[in-house]
Design a binder for these strands. Structure first.
Lengths: 229, 229
DNA sequence: TATTGTGAAAGGGTTCACAGCG
DNA sequence: CGCTGTGAACCCTTTCACAATA
């Protein structure tokens, strides 16, 4: 009673010329590794090192040189055979690939301690992310300044986002408010959400979300401890 | 000039009866998904739902039912054919697998705003993680209480960790202090580190580390935005 | 009948190993 | 000669599809 494996439909993906036809084929992990390479290149540039081989690039990273070459080759040929990669040029190429060759305005929702920490996190600024507003509902917090931004009432969030054409948000609200918060963010044009609430959120397919769940990170750490007694 | 692909050495892995002989073969992603299932099961148990099928278990997760069944099957047969999985039992099985059937004392290094947020993060308590101490070098912070713990000087960190046999630490110090901090943690017995400093850390192979780099998360989000214009 | 548990196939990412080239 | 860029092999994870079974 063997049955033919059903052939997957011929991959039409978008009846109207959606250009996703060729499957994207760039692994998500490659994108994450580009961020790592970028950090190394920033150091090398500061040290005025003009050229770097794939081998030395990954010296202190959990990445092989073949993998680095493959990752870069997805996007073009940036190196010279027999020599290596030009540091400054590779750095700006990767910045461009990641979309970091521009400023990204960001809104932050939730001005609890985590929100406060994020509001003036220097690491964001270095890569072109600017927190343009912080929203919270607590009247005692409204008007206070964290970093360079003032806390505003959540009721003004949609107007602000629309007015400033903001597409990126960080969410640091209590779990119970997280789904409503992202629904509101999405309704006014946000398409990328960095979520810190420990809640799994359902969103339309065009919205990109990345959740950081600190308990979950600890869980996978201790799973490994347990294996070792 | 074709050359034979070198056969990998016959996988001796541990000349002295290390029981890692059979390669571990459980994907890291499976472990992360177990954490997701656990969260669903906690809700189902509160709602007094006694049994759940793989299909309904993953209803609101980015996971297929076949994947859930495969994930669980790595660890045993917990379900009944034609019926599903018993909620309470599956929940405690997964807790056991992840090592959450016990208390894990945790130390936190760094009492900046992120550290403060972590110190009384309720999400940790739910899964058995107890922050037992917070360490910082800033004299103005020492003695202050965050959540239920008091900030202590970093100079007392090693003694505390050794005395209480602590193996898990969270690091929320400035990037420039991160490597030294984890070196000290490892030297007194810590083997799992959750790192929030944006710095790539080098550690002995037996230490498990998970780094949360918020800028990197934003970078992979905006890469996708860029693809869409 | 409904659903699990699982071989087998497919899919996709990584590594190998070397041709190509400066 | 050295290092990149890459086809092909390899390996790991997911998915399919169905036998087993409550």
């Amino acid at each position: 009673m063997l049955r033919e494996k059903q052939k997957p439909a011929p991959e039409i993906t978008g009846a109207y010329g959606d250009f996703q036809m060729k499957k994207n084929s760039i692994p998500e992990e490659t994108i994450r590794r580009l961020s790592l390479y970028l950090r190394i290149l920033m150091v090398l540039e500061r040290e005025k090192i003009p050229v770097i081989s794939s081998k030395r690039l990954v010296e202190h990273l959990p990445v092989t040189s073949a993998q680095a070459r493959r990752d870069l080759a997805y996007f073009g040929s940036f190196g010279k055979r027999g020599v290596g990669y030009p540091v400054t040029e590779l750095k700006s190429r990767i910045s461009g690939i990641l979309g970091l060759d521009r400023e990204w305005p960001v809104v932050l929702v939730g001005a609890g301690r985590l929100g406060q920490a994020l509001a003036d996190y220097k690491g964001f600024r270095r890569f072109g992310f600017h927190v343009r507003a912080v929203f919270d509902n607590n009247p005692r917090k409204i008007g206070r300044k964290f970093g360079t931004v003032t806390v505003r009432p959540v009721s003004t969030m949609e107007d602000f986002i629309r007015k400033h054409h903001i597409r990126v948000a960080a969410v640091a609200v209590p779990a119970s408010a997280a789904q409503e918060t992202v629904d509101r963010l999405v309704s006014c044009g946000v398409t990328a959400v960095l979520n810190f609430a420990p809640r799994y959120l359902e969103l339309p397919g065009h919205v990109h979300i990345k959740s950081v769940d600190m308990a979950m990170e600890l869980e996978s750490l201790v799973y490994h401890l347990k294996q070792e007694g």
